[in-house]
Design a protein around this nucleic acid. Structure first.
Lengths: 339, 339
DNA sequence: ACAAGGTTTTGGAGCGTTCCAATTTTCCTG
DNA sequence: CAGGAAAATTGGAACGCTCCAAAACCTTGT
């Protein structure tokens, strides 16, 4: 209908025969209006196709309905291949909640924190979603000190807990993998993990150990460590095979690939001779031959929860920190197939 | 120094002993000021740590310095695993140019185009970067009709050319792969591609054919087609091996993995018995055993060019469409290693 | 010294919204 | 049916910036 230029609050007001403020209220506090007035205003909004102008709102309210996400350069081996799914989920959830995601190229982790402050000052970004919060990451402390709301995807593994987080229960993931392998009849189930000291890695190791204990299975001598690199993992796996492992639970798909290589060296086939399970369900997992059973993180849920927690904090800045721990799920494929 | 509240233009002006407008000019058209005035204003800006408030600028100028990027759910097999690198490059280039990237969850491709209009109306997004512009994608036409600036990563393969684009010369990529294989002594070099009809796929096929022709090598019978799925590719590859191929150039890493499987079925080893090259240099490529030679797209450059073209168009909306074609580079690994 | 012409600086309005305080209307209760 | 409190609505200012047009300031040339 309306063809030219922007429709403003005032135009809607004129059309509905009320003041601009009333239209604003119709949008922001509808319960202030008398039902019939509300109805009339809503019709005018509908008819004109009015949409509020975010910049004007931001200027007045100091809230942009923007969520900042610092995008880090993807380190080759890590969980990077899977982060695009998270990011999509984040964007979708934010959109659904009437917010949007502002992407920025995060400067080298935890340095140059001013970038966060600038986003708040310049754009009135409401809060941030952090990922890759490893040990020694100072972002949480810094943001808290500056009263900037945030949620982290990933727990804080050391030091004082700060702020809200959403995380995936890695232990539950490896536990499920062990459970699956036990059902298939395995007893000597090894764990191929990263060097101790990384919170995420230790968590995944703990899940394995606990599941082994629960089933009364020995874990001694069945744990090997390697950097997140197939070749290091290949070498480490050899030791596990020597120790008589019939199954290997790896802390990442990259490590699992190393296990594949170790098996190949001895003319063994994953899934037939020795079972292998990975972690992350990266795109590579289903492309491997045989397909790699892998623990998939519920990234859509993580994205949704991140948004939920962040918006919650925005609404109530002083409430106690909230934590959400989600359970991942094993995707069985041929690598643990026939036993 | 300054501790409380926001620093505004007016404060800076007061401090420098000039009018607010002059400070604005110092920022936006410095050449209007007398050098000594400029100096004085800049010092005041420095001293106060002033940063312009984007919402206020946006409200006045109708430009948000925001670039919209519609993030699509990643279809498993495609180039998705590599798009995070592009996105990071995009964000980095945008940031460097004083812009930012606004992420939104794009509704199913080329439907619900109103989402783009809304972003323009609500947020004053300056323009968009499109990806995954396949055949029949109506976004370009729609955006042009609505006078919304955009750049596409990806050419238009059919119909009238619309707007600016940046793309990677797929033909040059497969050509380079053939070149590499010829140097290694191969003569029966096959192409494993997607079914005809996709612009990208046909382009990659053309590069192979052209390189073969240039070297006087026969290509007849050496081309197979399969959907972008390892198993379909495995089957298709069998035919190529029967035709005596000693090397396979694949249109994607996913297809190349299918070739690996076909070789494994015959107890052949990629790189030793038959050479295999992929396309995209996805994370999986270097994890495969043996490592997969693959054509890597210069995604950082693509991101940078996208921003450059888009900003160019914003500055000069009526100029003729500009196109940038970048050359990818083969990353040789063991799969084409020994011959 | 003064007008003409250019360069540099300024005041005021306005972008579209929401805040705040004040005003009007409505609904009770006595 | 007056009086008062609660509910609903309104007018004006303000958020921080840039546009526009007008004013002040320099140079020159005569």
């Amino acid at each position: 209908m309306v063809s030219t230029g922007r429709v403003t609050l005032t135009m809607v007001a004129k059309r509905a025969g009320v003041s601009p403020q009333t239209v604003s209220n119709a949008l922001n506090s509808p319960d202030l209006l008398r039902p019939d007035t509300l109805e009339r205003v809503q019709q005018a909004i509908e008819a004109t196709g009015y949409r509020p102008h975010r910049a004007a709102q931001t200027l007045r309210t100091r809230s942009s309905k923007l969520i900042g996400y610092g995008f880090e350069p993807a380190p080759a081996g890590g969980t990077a291949p899977v982060m695009d799914r998270f990011l999509h989920a984040l964007a979708a959830s934010a959109d659904a909640a009437g917010h949007r995601v502002l992407l920025f190229a995060a400067p080298a982790a935890s340095s140059a924190l001013e970038a966060y402050q600038e986003l708040v000052d310049d754009y009135n970004v409401d809060g941030f979603v952090l990922t890759g919060t490893g040990r020694g990451d100072q972002r949480q402390a810094w943001l808290e000190r500056h009263d900037i709301p945030f949620v982290a995807f990933g727990r804080k593994w050391s030091g004082r807990q700060i702020g809200d987080w959403v995380d995936v229960d890695g232990g539950a993931g490896t536990d499920a993998a062990v459970e699956h392998l036990v059902e298939l009849g395995h007893r000597r189930i090894a764990f191929l993990g990263w060097p101790r000291g990384s919170g995420v890695g230790d968590d995944r190791a703990a899940g394995w150990r606990e599941a082994m204990r629960r089933h009364g299975l020995p874990s001694r001598g069945l744990r090997a460590e390697a950097a997140n690199d197939p070749d290091a993992a290949r070498i480490a796996t050899a030791g596990l095979l020597d120790a008589g492992a019939t199954a290997v639970v790896a802390a990442s798909d990259t490590l699992a690939i190393g296990a594949y290589r170790a098996l190949a060296e001895r003319d063994l086939t994953p899934g037939r001779d020795v079972a292998v399970a990975g972690f992350d369900d990266s795109p590579a997992a289903e492309l491997l031959t045989p397909g790699l059973s892998s623990v998939a993180q519920p990234l859509e849920d993580v994205g949704r929860e991140c948004v939920r927690l962040l918006l919650g904090r925005l609404a109530e800045p002083q409430r106690a920190p909230e934590h959400v721990l989600l359970t991942p799920q094993l995707k069985p494929r041929a690598s643990t197939g026939t036993c």
